[in-house]
Design a protein around this nucleic acid. Structure first.
Length: 679
RNA sequence: GGUGAGGUAGCUCAGUUGGUUAGAGCAUCGGAUUCAUAACCCGAAGGUCGGGAGUUCAAAUCUCCUCCUCACUACCA
């Protein structure tokens, strides 16, 4: 830590309270931040570790509605579940707070008010969908309709979960309110925007001071700033009734945007933790603020939140944002909705007392520079060939020999040989090596270095062979075993940030108090004559059946996912409504790719009535040359629309199966004339 | 399509400002050993550094082109 900083404030991304936490969350931000903080504490530095549940936003209100409970019930449930999971894994937050509590509401409200009074925001009136029956504006998530991209009839207003594309509610075909089932109408509403476009120069110079950030983080920030039009204003309020009310006249029925409110949660949690001194951590220039997050949060923590803090004026800015990439699971993306995940609460049951094994595996294979893959086979190997064979084994053989030769009493060293002195010198150098890697957020490297200390121990024993010498040179053995014990003790110190449960167990076996980081630079922590406790195994081997069980569990999720899902029927419609659609048979005369797009084909269609141009998003499924002469069904009286500068007149009917694959729908009798009515 | 990040041994990753036979861990094979959870220790094998072209005495490292993966973003009436 640079000398100018006196304390560190570490935050971990606030997990969203609509589901349990999985290994991806852990590997992405909670584990690295925990390692970092534990190390800082061990060094005796002033550090606080902040986290909490993010409990606002639309998805929670939808989940509540679905389950027939209140939003508060939903967040209560997951807040507890997530908090327990973190605790179970030894994630050592100083406080695990939540954004639905009073302190947070006040803090977020004040923060908004300050910016409002400083005239930071711009007001804008926009058109949003409104449900006339439920008498409220509809957030994107409250609107479903047919995805314009993959024709999934159950796409949400912000996103289609089938094809994964990001949508805008106004893009949906046949939008429908999930509140009342009625068709929503567009209505004007006023919202407050953070004018990121105007703030861009300030943000630019802020980022310029942080070129030392991880390349993935800095690169992404730069891409936001440098992209075509630069930053765009972003609405900081929403028409919704779950969240922090907007503290401004005329804003009834509106709440703060969840991404405005969530990072302020870090501040509120600090207030809650340190009611008297919290300002020292947030407003004093000698505090270093570090946000640990996953890559999906980069823009919020590196651009939006710093903008908010800058405009407020009282606060310090993040000094670093060490974001990790994503963790995949057995080759596929982790997905909550597809149940493709290893849930922490389930792991704690299936692998009781093996928290450190997962901590070790996730840290040694953390997605620090690119997306990584978690496999159960790798988990098993890491446990059996590294934790058991290298670390556990070294500790075990040292303690077994100590009991065998000295009844568990630490022998006094006699004369050190040249080799001994070399080992002691190396031993003392480990804390700095590990520390340096941690300070640079290179946790994988730090962990590997920690294991090297255990390797050093194994090597030392193999080379000195005390089990042979005991027959000929008992005095020499005392020195050897003393050194082996010192290595063991120092291992207990330096493994603590990574493997806190193991560290504690080890100190227990050594019958030693929990030593701090600086002690590991010493080579005489275990005093001669000190009595150690009976050894027990630090790690147990994990056999194939246990792993198979987990793999089977995932296979089951997979088979559920690939099962054909038939979308439910849409609401009843009238014949009148249907007969407004003029659908005809037609034939594709020409087809070509629309340049600079992935999915679009420009088609010339003989509709019987005329020959017209239609742009269709089918390029992923059909090659242009293969579909000349293909008979299709086409909706001919649809309003024309320009797509990529080409006027598209009409829409080709496509069937979409449960995998999202498209197929033409056409008359099955050969040579059916173009222009035949489909009715 | 645009932007960003990656593509290095079977697997997971290091490779500083271009410089001697490209490194580590795990897995594999061989040897040694028995204190230890058949673990440890020693050794070997394994890579035309995604592909192509260029700059240079010298390129994994710089430039250009191209392919693949991931993220954000655009097009589907």
């Amino acid at each position: 830590m640079p000398a100018t900083y006196k304390r560190t404030l570490v935050t971990s991304a606030l997990p969203y309270a609509n589901g349990p936490v999985h290994i991806g969350h852990l590997a992405g931000c909670y584990l690295p931040s925990d390692i970092f903080v534990r190390y800082k504490r061990s060094k005796g530095e002033d550090v606080i570790f902040i986290c909490g549940s993010d409990e606002h936003g639309v998805p929670i209100t939808i989940k509540a509605k679905k389950e027939g409970v209140s939003p508060q019930d939903v967040v209560d449930k997951y807040h507890k579940m997530m908090g327990d999971a973190f605790k179970g894994f030894g994630i050592s937050f100083d406080i695990y707070s939540r954004t639905s509590n009073k302190v947070h509401h006040e803090t977020a409200s004040d923060f908004f008010k300050t910016l409002y009074d400083k005239h930071v925001f711009t007001e804008e009136i926009t058109e949003q969908y409104y449900d006339t029956e439920a008498k409220q504006f509809l957030a994107d998530r409250y609107i479903t309709g047919t995805c314009p991209k993959c024709s999934n009839p159950n796409a949400y207003g912000d996103q289609c979960e089938k094809c994964g594309s990001t949508l805008s509610a106004t893009d949906l075909i046949n939008p429908q309110s999930t509140l009342s089932g009625s068709k929503p109408v567009l209505k004007e509403t006023k919202n407050w925007f953070l004018p990121l476009d105007k703030l861009q120069p300030k943000i630019q110079s802020y980022l310029d001071q942080h070129k030392d950030w991880k390349t993935n983080v800095y690169g992404q920030c730069k891409s936001w700033l440098d992209s075509g039009e630069g930053l765009q204003p972003r609405a900081m309020t929403r028409d919704l009734n779950w969240g922090v009310p907007v503290p401004v006249k005329g804003a009834e029925g509106k709440v703060l945007y969840v991404w405005f409110d969530a990072p302020i949660g870090y501040i509120s949690a600090t207030k809650e933790l340190k009611p008297d001194t919290w300002e020292l951590y947030w407003k004093d220039k000698s505090t270093r603020l570090i946000h640990f997050i996953g890559k999906d949060n980069i823009v919020f923590h590196c651009i939006i939140f710093p903008s908010m803090l800058m405009e407020h004026g009282d606060y310090i800015l993040p000094d670093n944002v060490p974001a990790n990439e994503f963790l995949n699971l057995e080759g596929d993306k982790i997905s909550t909705s597809r149940n493709w995940a290893v849930w922490l609460h389930e792991y704690l049951i299936d692998f009781k007392d093996k928290q450190d094994v997962l901590r070790y595996t996730l840290c040694s294979n953390a997605p620090e520079t690119k997306d990584n893959d978690f496999t159960w086979a790798d988990f098993q190997t890491k446990n059996n060939s590294e934790l058991v064979a290298i670390l556990g084994n070294f500790v075990n053989r040292t303690l077994v020999l100590t009991h065998k030769y000295y009844n568990g009493s630490v022998p006094a060293p006699e004369t050190y040989t040249k080799e001994d002195l070399l080992i002691l010198e190396q031993l003392a150098s480990f804390p700095d090596k590990i520390a340096s890697a941690i300070e640079q957020f290179k946790f994988r490297e730090a962990l590997a270095e920690m294991m090297n200390l255990a390797r050093l121990g194994n090597k030392y024993l193999a080379e000195t062979e005390p089990w042979k010498l005991i027959k000929s040179d008992e005095i020499r053995v005392k020195t050897i075993m003393n050194i082996a014990l010192q290595i063991t003790c120092n291992l207990a110190v330096v493994c603590e940030p990574f493997l806190p449960f193991t560290s504690q167990k080890l100190f227990g076996m050594l019958n030693m108090p929990l030593l701090k980081w600086h002690s590991a630079k010493q080579t005489s922590n275990m005093a001669a004559g000190h009595q150690i406790n009976k050894e027990e195994l630090l790690f147990a081997k994990i056999e194939d059946p246990e792993i198979q069980l987990q793999i089977d569990k995932l296979a089951q999720s997979k088979s559920v996912n690939t099962a054909t899902v038939i979308p439910p029927s849409k609401p009843e419609t009238s014949f009148d409504e249907f007969s407004k659609m003029d659908i005809r048979t037609g034939t594709i005369l020409e087809a070509e790719r629309v340049p600079k797009t992935d999915k679009l084909l420009k088609l010339k269609i003989d509709t019987g009535i005329d020959t017209r141009t239609v742009v269709s998003g089918i390029a992923e499924w059909y090659k242009p040359e293969e579909i000349i002469g293909q008979q299709v069904s086409i909706l001919v009286n649809l309003a024309p629309r320009k797509i990529k500068g080409i006027e598209s007149r009409g829409m080709i009917l496509m069937a979409a199966n449960s995998q999202g694959e498209l197929s033409f729908v056409s008359a099955t009798k050969p040579a059916f004339n173009n222009g035949s009515e489909v009715k």
